[in-house]
Design a protein around this nucleic acid. Structure first.
Length: 713
DNA sequence: CTTGGCGTGATTTTT
DNA sequence: TCACGCCAAG
């Protein structure tokens, strides 16, 4: 009878997890093993078979995207209505907000329940203003954001009463940072605002003050928990809530920003959690899975259920530009054979690697989409209007008022010039009485609210047409965005007794937590996705290209062994995004301070799973020779400058034919290699030499270890 | 106010 | 490995 409420396609491991009735259960979910399916089934099982109320389940994710996915799947599974009414379902932050607003005594911390959430940029602004106003001495001002975050992490609560060692005072920078932190705390209270970190911390702190507890805590991607989130979860568990958590220790790629890498261990030991695993991967072909498993450290039981598939292609390119050109060609080829660009993804280690690809793809007419983080401030009009609304809600919100009035583009103007922040501040404090229509409207907003019942009404109320400059080129676009934004404000159905200010408040909070509706939704599906390896987590594509697999880039050049583990997991995550086809590529002549030649990671993959290819050997050799000539010329020039002596041999004539030019410059030396046979040295420095072998192409050797003999001419 | 010695971080990013 | 910022000496 239990089975009736579940989809038939659950495998035995998934069933075991769903039906497990221990009070704490950790599911070690391997890549592509159906973790979301299990989580969804568990929620449904608890609700429909075990009769747990939706309100008694706290379901936590880390990203809005994950929350959306689960919500969608729950929606698809349920046949009756109320499952969608889960009040405490969403990201840690959104659930914390919900709890703080309706269950927790925020007054105890000096807040009222209608507090607003601050985004990180605003937090930084607040800090900067405080520094200025109070003349605080803060070092490393450009790194202030980082320092604020760091302080947050250091203040992590002690676990289970065990005192946390105070960090040694010697290392700490001596400045007004403690004063600033205290001032921030007070300022946030005075302005009734909480940062992202505050949402979690305050929830954690206040949970102890109330009777309420959920029956179940269900966590997705539990390996991404940071110390504060873990503390919050502990609070719930210590009150008697039961735990069901799903995650994968092989996908810990965010430990650098605080994810407590041993959550599994912690929860297992502290709550005697039952550990189960989901070993069957449904996503990748056997070859891909086998190659990837070299980079997984836990859960050797990873098995696949798919056919062998094609080998992993390893490709050598001259440099990132050549590679981009090749990729453009390759993608065109795939498109011609009927594969949608939306099924193709290119992953790289660093954001700045996308530049070349963007240029080349744009020129070649390949539809692509780069995934970049966006903040509320990316769209100035929208951000400006948010500030207008904020100040309208509370005339005490000076930062918002000043921003709204003194904005260079959309703010108030006097004598054709935008008013200064100083002027705006003076107006807000009643020290100046300029007749600023926007200011008047914002002040009158609370009384006028009842008559404002549509997006257009709000738009007209603030006479936004005037502020958006009807003559400007961006007017139409700006107006569309603003109206779309106001529409989404009115679209959210008001809960009972909610008036416009209440709805506005939750709208502002939602904008910070979930972002605003994007305007550009032009067929995202039909485009090649370009993203960092980090951003690829949680996604899957039929064709994946991981580029720049050079030592120094993947793994990224850093000191320390612990970090390299994470680089390995990152590579693992990237590889396991591929369903059918995976290609890795590296450069012989990378741009910056990356080492030439393939990464050690490539050599770790069993050779029988790999098919090695060089994109275009002829072109590569040509490039190689050109570069050699250039280097030699540069070297001679600098030597000439140093010595000022003219007895150096003449530079070769214009190298119209690179072949003879190369021979003239470098003494041809011949070597015999054990494996490759006779070859010619084409480049050499203190430690390395590059040798051209007939039939094998150019190879690089470390002088100290090369197995070869020199042949005297 | 300038200079050199020293120490540290760089890269990845969600809410 | 490099670049940047701090800090103390001149």
């Amino acid at each position: 009878m239990q089975e009736q409420v579940l989809p038939a396609e659950l495998n035995e491991y998934q069933r075991k997890a769903v039906f497990n009735d221990s009070s704490a259960c950790l599911v070690n979910a391997n890549v592509g093993s159906g973790k979301t399916t299990v989580l969804t089934a568990k929620v449904k099982y608890l609700h429909e078979a075990c009769g747990v109320n939706c309100e008694d389940m706290v379901v936590l994710t880390f990203t809005n995207k994950a929350a959306g996915e689960i919500r969608e799947r729950l929606g698809a599974m349920r046949d009756q209505g109320e499952l969608v009414q889960m009040r405490y379902f969403g990201t840690f932050h959104s659930v914390a907000l919900q709890l703080l607003r309706e269950r927790l005594p925020v007054q105890q911390l000096g807040y009222t329940p209608d507090f607003l959430v601050m985004d990180p940029e605003e937090e930084l602004d607040m800090a900067l203003h405080l520094i200025q106003d109070r003349k605080l001495q803060i070092k490393y001002r450009n790194r202030l954001k980082k320092r604020l975050e760091q302080e947050d992490e250091e203040a992590v609560p002690s676990e289970n009463g065990r005192e946390k060692l105070p960090s040694p005072p010697g290392r700490r920078i001596q400045d007004d940072m403690p004063v600033l932190l205290q001032a921030m705390k007070e300022e946030k209270r005075a302005r009734n605002r909480m940062t992202f970190a505050d949402l979690i911390r305050n929830t954690e702190a206040l949970l102890a003050e109330v009777e309420w507890r959920p029956a179940w805590v269900i966590i997705d991607e539990v390996q991404d928990c940071d110390a504060w989130q873990l503390a919050l979860v502990r609070r719930l568990l210590d009150k008697g809530a039961r735990l069901f958590a799903v995650g994968d220790p092989n996908q810990v790629i965010y430990s650098w920003r605080g994810s407590a890498c041993n959550v599994f261990y912690t929860l297992r030991t502290e709550y005697q959690a039952t550990e189960l695993s989901l070993p069957v991967n449904y996503r990748s072909s056997a070859s891909i899975l086998e190659a990837a498993s070299v980079f997984s450290q836990y859960g050797s039981s990873l098995t696949g259920n798919r056919e062998r598939g094609s080998k992993i292609v390893v490709k050598k390119h001259y440099d990132p530009f050549q590679e981009a050109c090749y990729l453009a060609d390759r993608i065109k080829g795939l498109q011609d054979s009927g594969i949608s660009p939306g099924q193709i993804a290119v992953f790289y280690r660093l954001q700045n690697q996308s530049g070349v690809l963007e240029e080349v793809f744009a020129k070649e007419g390949i539809p692509f989409q780069v995934s970049v983080k966006h903040t509320l401030r990316d769209c100035p009009v929208q951000y400006w209007l948010l500030q207008v609304l904020r100040f309208s809600l509370s005339r005490e919100d000076y930062p918002a008022g000043i921003y709204a009035l003194s904005h260079k583009e959309y703010g108030e103007r006097r004598n054709g010039k935008p008013i200064t922040e100083k002027t705006a501040a003076a107006v807000l404090h009643g020290e100046k009485d300029l007749k600023l229509p926007l200011y008047e409207r914002m002040l009158a907003f609370p009384e006028c609210c009842p008559s404002l019942d549509s997006p257009q009404a709000l738009y007209d109320y603030f006479s936004l047409d005037g502020y958006l400059h009807p003559t400007s080129a961006s007017f139409q676009k700006d107006k569309e965005r603003i109206l779309a934004m106001l529409e989404s404000l009115f679209r959210q159905q008001p809960s009972e007794g909610e008036n416009l200010p209440d709805r506005l408040r939750s709208f502002l909070n939602d904008a910070v937590l979930y972002g605003l509706p994007e305007q550009e939704t032009k067929e995202e599906d039909g485009r090649v996705k370009l993203m960092t390896l980090h951003a690829s987590k949680g996604l899957e594509f039929s064709f994946c290209f991981i580029i720049g697999v050079n030592y120094g880039l993947i793994p990224l050049r850093t000191a320390g062994f612990e970090e390299e583990d994470e680089e390995r997991r990152l590579f693992f995550v990237g590889m396991t995004r591929a369903k059918d086809f995976l290609e890795l590529s590296y450069y012989t002549n990378p741009d910056n301070r990356v080492m030439p030649g393939e990464s050690r990671f490539i050599r770790m993959i069993p050779p029988e799973l790999i098919q090695e290819e060089t994109a275009d050997p002829a072109q590569e050799n040509l490039q190689e020779l050109r570069k050699m000539v250039r280097q030699e010329i540069e070297a001679r020039q600098s030597r000439a400058e140093e010595t000022l002596e003219a007895d150096l041999p003449e530079l070769p004539k214009e190298p119209s034919q690179p072949q003879p030019a190369g021979k003239e410059i470098i003494q041809p030396r011949t070597v015999i290699h054990r494996k490759y046979g006779p070859g010619t040295v084409i480049r050499e420095d203190d430690a390395m030499m590059e040798i051209e072998f007939e039939g094998y192409g150019a190879k690089e050797f470390l002088k100290a270890f090369s197995a070869m003999e020199f042949v005297e001419e």
